[in-house]
Nucleic acid binder design. Structure first.
Length: 462
RNA sequence: GUGGGAUUAGCUCAGCUGGUUAGAGCAUCGGAUUGUGAUUCCGAGGGUCGUGGGUUCGAGUCCCAUAUUCCACCCCA
């Protein structure tokens, strides 16, 4: 009988325990910061009704949705009525519409769950991945001030994740649309198309984008294309220069003027929120591909690793849940793709293998003394130390090898010599040192050692 | 959905224009006096060369098909 090949489908991330600990450490940092800024947790089911999920989108998302069907329904040949969620924003819209009367507005929620997309496999692209979303949903209206609060949360998270310098890149779609309108590109659909092209400028290069804009189907006159290219090439270098960029735009139509006013308020509040100006800039080429963004848009780029692209992005949308309720529910949100972020940080060498969550291991020196070892482990656990006991007699060398591979730092030995002296030997696998402590002092000493070890960076870089 | 690469040991790969029993590094397992790992030394196991067909005296190597996988575009986190 041939064995089935043990494998996973492409596009899923599966980690070894120490990497899983590093991933969870990252997730805890994100969660802690979400909560620190006053966001509330929710979870929604992985499976939703297809008519709920497939409202807003047309071709592209539908192509990527996994439909879910019971075998019975499949055999009857029914069309699937269920599907796996492909993001957390659509389920949020459904959630808010469904629970509208039980929620307090503005509703500030965070959500960290897996989503599913039928992507073709590629590096850093996953079919199952974690999204960590925060959104603020208002009833009828929501102040643009919230658009400044979200980047402040993101700043707090990435600073704590210790991934080096990064910049929050901001823009406002009203500025882009208003500018295009002033230039004479007035058709809404064409504005969208131009937005999408302009958004690729950092990836494809300015020359290629200009080429696309002047060619079919855009066929923009050279002067228009040049004006657009000159406009979107602008980046601010400081808080004041960002304000000056806005000032220099002038006016001309209500869309443009509204965008400038919004952007100015966001920048001002970002500063007031205490985000140092080195961490944010105004970038007129940021547009985002998604259709539903209407105002502020943002992306986050790691300074040392621009090739990674945006590690966190989002923006402002009007009327999130128009498909489910007649209430007007505007919102602003950002999403961190945690799976891709972790994967790319690891590729870039910014995240190494974590230490084990097991803090101490009691070695087995004599099979007959097992009850003694169990008692010792009980003491440690009662003191809050994560402890593992060797339950099978093995050569001591093997036990050390096991501890080393498992990433366990402290190995405790209580054998004939130690019993006679009333001590426990502690071997520090990292420092390659060994010392003895009185049994009564054991938990206290070990706690000190572990605390010192915690004070060092959580994660060893390779 | 459109286009391009790749497939040889658990992993990363070598194998020149077809020529005997297909190799290396890492990993795994065992040993180097019975309470000390990761370093060193010695040894061992492990492959129907993705699958099916064809050309040939002879195919890992050439041709066709198929599967799988990766990359670029599209789109996105």
């Amino acid at each position: 009988m041939s064995l089935a090949k043990a494998r996973t489908m492409p596009g899923v991330m599966e980690l070894l325990p120490l990497d899983q600990i590093a991933f969870q450490t990252m997730m805890e940092t994100i969660r802690r910061n979400f909560e620190r800024f006053g966001f509330l947790p929710i979870e929604t089911p992985a499976i939703e009704f297809t008519d709920v999920l497939l409202t807003k989108s047309g071709g592209e998302t539908e192509r990527q949705v996994y439909f879910v069907q019971s075998t019975g329904s499949l055999q009857k040949g029914d069309d699937p009525t269920l599907a796996l969620r492909f993001d957390l924003t659509v389920p949020l819209a459904r959630y808010v519409a469904e629970h509208e009367h039980d929620l307090s507005f503005p509703f500030r929620r965070y959500q960290m769950q897996r989503v599913y997309r039928g992507e073709s496999a590629q590096r850093g692209r996953f079919r199952e991945f974690y999204q960590c979303d925060i959104d603020v949903i208002g009833k009828d209206q929501l102040s643009v001030r919230y658009d400044a609060e979200l980047p402040a949360v993101i700043h707090s998270i990435f600073r704590e994740l210790n991934v080096g310098a990064f910049t929050l890149q901001l823009n406002n779609r009203k500025i882009l649309r208003g500018f295009f309108e002033r230039l004479g590109v007035t058709d809404g659909e064409q504005q969208m198309q131009v937005l999408r092209e302009v958004d690729k400028i950092d990836k494809r290069g300015a020359a290629a984008v200009r080429q696309t804009l002047t060619a079919e189907p855009f066929s923009l006159p050279a002067e228009q294309a040049d004006a657009i290219m000159a406009f979107v090439a602008q980046r601010s270098s400081s808080h004041d220069s960002a304000l000056a960029m806005l000032e220099a735009l002038g006016g001309g139509n209500t869309t443009l003027e509204a965008g400038i006013a919004e952007m100015r308020e966001v920048l001002t509040l970002l500063k007031a929120l205490g985000v140092p100006e080195a961490f944010y800039l105004l970038n007129f080429s940021i547009a985002r591909g998604l259709d539903y963004y209407t105002g502020t848009v943002f992306e986050t780029i790691l300074t040392a690793h621009p090739e990674i692209g945006s590690v966190c992005s989002g923006g402002r949308y009007e009327n999130l849940a128009s498909h489910y309720t007649k209430s007007r529910l505007p919102g602003v949100g950002v999403s961190i793709g945690a799976t891709r972020l972790f994967y790319q940080l690891r590729e870039a060498g910014l995240i190494g293998t974590a230490r084990s969550s097991v803090q101490a291991m009691v070695a087995m020196l004599d099979d007959a003394d097992l009850p003694l070892y169990l008692e010792l482990a009980g003491q440690l656990r009662a003191a809050g130390i994560n402890t593992e006991v060797q339950l099978e007699p093995k050569k001591l060398g093997k036990q050390f090898q096991y501890a080393d591979r498992a990433g366990i730092r402290f190995v405790l030995m209580l054998g004939t010599d130690e019993k006679a002296k009333g001590v426990v030997a502690i071997k520090d696998m990292w420092r390659q040192e060994q010392f003895e402590v009185e049994r009564a002092e054991l938990t206290r000493t070990l706690r000190v050692e572990i605390e010192q070890s915690e004070a060092m960076p959580k994660v060893k870089t390779p």
